[in-house]
Amino acid sequence: MWGSEGKGTISIVIADLTIVSFFANVFVGSSMSYFASKFKTEEILPFAYLWSILIGILIPVLFSFNHTLEYSNYLIALSVLSSLLAANVNLFVGQQNIKLFNLYTVLQQIVHIVFIIIVVYLIKITSVNSYFLAQISCFGALFLVSTFQVLKHCDFKRISFSKEIGNKLFDYGWKTQLSAFLQFLNNRLSFYFLEYFKGIVSVGVFSVGIAFSEAIWTVSRSLSVVLYADIINNKNSNEAIEKTKISLRVSFLITLLFIVVMLIIPAQLYSMIFGKDFSQTKEIVLFLSPGILAIAVSNIIGYYFAGINKLRILNVKAMIGLIFTAISSFYIIPRWGIRGACVITSISYCLSSGLLFWRFYQITEFRVQDFILSKTEINLLLNKVLKKK
């Protein structure tokens, strides 16, 4: 409906929103999950809510110099509401309530689509603004519902701001978010180089391929969250390593399957679904596929290191990928455009993931079997899918 230009606008605003979320996640991200089992909810949630509001306003105001006033207002609303919702959802992870985490992860997509339909077809706002209005409504509704579920178990008399707890949240949070922010820049820097050298339309085309990559990573990220919740509540290091290896092979094989399926789909089908502007989608996925597979593996290992509070390697891994992306983009994207951005992104993913992979297998024995499901594990997966005991 909005074409490649509209898709490009959405991609840039959502990229800015993601940058805001990295600052917000110092208190509402992994630190919320990590300390949920160590402190009372009433002691950590006030920090998360207050930080969400402050960062959700401050960072978008700084970004307003590069956007129209209209999009800046959308970014402020999206930033505050998405951060508040993230605080609740990550609290569920720390409480090992994976059911609620999964529910809200899925609902963010479904409710957003429902509100888009309402805004476009009932309210009759058909511009790209409808995307942002729908997303604001989605975040707001889910935050209210999740807050009710969180606060009904809280004792309001115990709400407090402890300097000691605040310092611990900040110390853990900024270390994990530094790594995540560097990785994000590694993932999205090509957007800004493409916009500068080739225009917003090329960003829209390239972003569809990236969206497919991130859709495939859903399996890896879901496994990672479950693994992370288990590790931070588990004191047995050997058991944690074994569970990490099981998650590794499941993530590797399922991701490989998805990539093969996407490459089998005819290029014409992508054009039929997304429009003639997106005829390069299959080619983009092909170039990105080695990096997609690499990140699917490194996501699992990264959450293992985060779960045992070994964060330095995550920062080094992200920095290596970012440096390669920044330097190579200056030379390759002006010459090769979208194709060059794909090659750079894929190589960067492989380089950064390779370091994490090497570090993990320094502390454990490498086995080819780590990437091959056993008969017992296949049966277990089938039983879970079929809901059999």
Rank of each mutant, 00 (worst) to 15 (best):
V368K: 15
W174C: 00
W2N: 12
V250P: 05
G8V: 02
V13K: 11
G354L: 02
V297Y: 08
R339V: 04
G29M: 02
S11H: 11
Y104H: 11
R158K: 15
L382S: 15
S137D: 14
I246R: 15
A87H: 04
L248Q: 05
Y49N: 12
A36V: 02
F39N: 14
F366C: 03
I241E: 13
I347D: 05
L122M: 06
K384W: 12
E377N: 04
S237E: 15
F161C: 10
Y71W: 08
G3V: 01
T147I: 08
S289T: 04
I338A: 13
L69G: 04
W358Q: 11
G307C: 04
K157M: 07
G94I: 01
E164L: 09
S251K: 02
A24Y: 00
I125L: 09
K317L: 02
L253T: 09
Y192N: 05
I216L: 12
E164W: 08
Q96W: 09
V285C: 08
H67D: 04
V205H: 12
V385Y: 13
F197W: 10
Q135L: 11
Q95W: 05
R188Q: 10
I44V: 13
E5R: 13
K124W: 08
Y303M: 09
G173Y: 04
D155R: 13
S160I: 05
N88W: 02
K245S: 03
T281W: 04
F39T: 09
K375S: 06
S374Q: 00
L142H: 13
K243T: 03
T126E: 15
Y304Q: 01
I273K: 12
L380V: 07
T105W: 12
V368E: 13
I292D: 09
R339L: 07
G29Y: 01
A296L: 06
F22D: 00
T325S: 14
V145K: 14
V145R: 10
L78M: 05
P266L: 05
L256P: 08
K235G: 06
C350G: 02
T41H: 14
V111R: 11
I113E: 07
L269E: 04
T147H: 13
S190C: 12
I57K: 09
G199K: 06
S33E: 11
V343L: 15
N315E: 11
T147V: 10
A24F: 00
I118P: 08
V316G: 11
G8M: 09
I55W: 13
I259W: 10
V120C: 10
S82I: 01
F193Y: 12
Y104G: 05
K168S: 03
A87M: 06
F258L: 03
F184L: 05
I165A: 13
F330A: 02
L50G: 03
R158D: 15
R221D: 15
S64R: 14
Y34L: 05
T376G: 11
I125W: 12
S4N: 04
T244H: 15
Y74M: 00
L263H: 03
I259G: 08
Y49Q: 07
N88D: 07
I344A: 00
A229Q: 06
L58S: 15
F39G: 10
Y192G: 02
W2F: 12
T218D: 06
V297Q: 04
W217P: 03
A180T: 00
L194G: 03
I301Q: 05
R367N: 14
Q96N: 14
L189N: 01
A215T: 06
Y71I: 00
S279L: 10
